[in-house]
Design a protein around this nucleic acid. Structure first.
Lengths: 138, 138
DNA sequence: TTATGTGCAAAGGGTTTGCACTCCG
DNA sequence: CGGAGTGCAAACCCTTTGCACATAA
């Protein structure tokens, strides 16, 4: 094993990293690296796209941000509200995101996998729908 | 609504489509479009990569094949064993895939989403681990 | 000073598309 | 014949990398 799930890496604090952290802290939805970079640039923060990618990647590795993939393969990031394992319910229309935990599901996944002889089980689960607001304005 | 989940599209039967269907039928694991194309080529079937992509996409749209994304954003496909909603348990080492259904999870997802005001709920769930064989040969 | 972090721009890699050609119906 | 289906290669797009420069410790 060479992976450290919640390993706290000691990265050197820099202006661009702070700006990125800020940007993430201010957003409630998942956003693409490009989107974040654009926002940063618009705000006057001079940060390179590569830097955004590199930091996002590092933070994801340390579990500081969640990463999920859109249907078309684009990675979107979001600051974790909690540091424990959780899943998301995302609004397809506006991107509103709610984090949820589900012990029942975790156990189910584990059990089902074990039932088929699998070990060292992990899983990905994303739920999407229409949030109350978006559903109402239809 | 413009999506037809299991809509049966009437595509014109062609040599390449047949080859692709064959290739998919013979595989038990998820494979990338490129991989499938290589296999097809190796078998002597002259099929263009673009055609593989186009058909795979069409079939996925009609629910004839399952599509999931690898962690690095690559799409991998597999012929569905069943036409009803299901999930997968995939071996990280060899790709062995088992399809499973889980009413409990379906209901849980629906309930959790509803609890937060979401409607028209959908979800994605993939489970991965090490199959018995691969775990043994470590 | 020295290793780490950053910017820029070029390179990568998977997927999509334009266009002319082929083949089913 | 007419249009769906194909092949090829160029175009796309997100992401990664190489390398020289800036900066935290």
């Amino acid at each position: 094993m060479s992976e450290h799930p919640q390993a706290k890496a000691e990265r050197r604090p820099t202006r661009q990293r702070a700006a990125l952290a800020d940007e993430l802290a201010g957003a409630a939805e998942f956003r693409s690296a490009q989107d974040i970079h654009a926002s940063l640039t618009a705000s006057g923060a001079r940060v390179g796209l590569a830097t955004v990618y590199r930091n996002l990647q590092a933070m994801a590795g340390d579990g500081e941000v969640d990463v999920i993939r859109t249907a078309d393969g684009e990675a979107i990031y979001r600051a974790c509200a909690t540091d424990q394992h959780h899943h998301h319910v995302v609004c397809r229309a506006c991107g509103l995101t709610v984090e949820v935990t589900g012990d029942a599901v975790e156990r189910w996944a584990e059990a089902v996998a074990a039932q088929h002889g699998f070990s060292d089980v992990r899983h990905t689960l994303e739920i999407d729908g229409l949030c109350a607001d978006c559903a109402a304005r239809r």
